[in-house]
Simulated assay, not measured.
Amino acid sequence: MDEIQALVNKFVNDRDWDQYHQPEKLAMSISIEAAELLEHYQWGYDGDEQGVKEELADVLIYCFQMCDKIGVRADDIIKMKMKKNEEKYPVEKAKGVATKYDKL
Score class of each variant (00 low, 15 high):
Q5W: 01
K69V: 11
N13S: 04
Y101T: 01
K69N: 05
A57T: 07
E33M: 12
H40D: 09
E36V: 11
E86R: 08
W43N: 14
Y89R: 02
V91F: 14
V8I: 15
A94E: 05
E49H: 12
K93D: 06
D75G: 04
S31Y: 01
Q22F: 13
L60H: 11
Y41P: 04
K10C: 09
Y20L: 14
W43T: 07
A74I: 02
K88Q: 06
D2A: 12
R73E: 10
D18R: 15
V59Q: 02
S31P: 00
Q22N: 12
M82R: 09
G71W: 13
Y20S: 10
F64R: 01
E92A: 06
K95C: 08
Y41R: 00
V12K: 04
T99G: 00
Q19A: 08
M66E: 04
D76L: 04
L56M: 07
M82S: 04
A94P: 05
V59R: 00
K84M: 06
I32D: 10
G51M: 06
N13F: 01
I77D: 09
K103Y: 07
V91G: 04
V52A: 01
I4S: 14
K81V: 12
E33A: 15
T99I: 11
E3S: 15
L60S: 09
K95S: 10
G96T: 11
D68I: 03
D18A: 15
A34G: 14
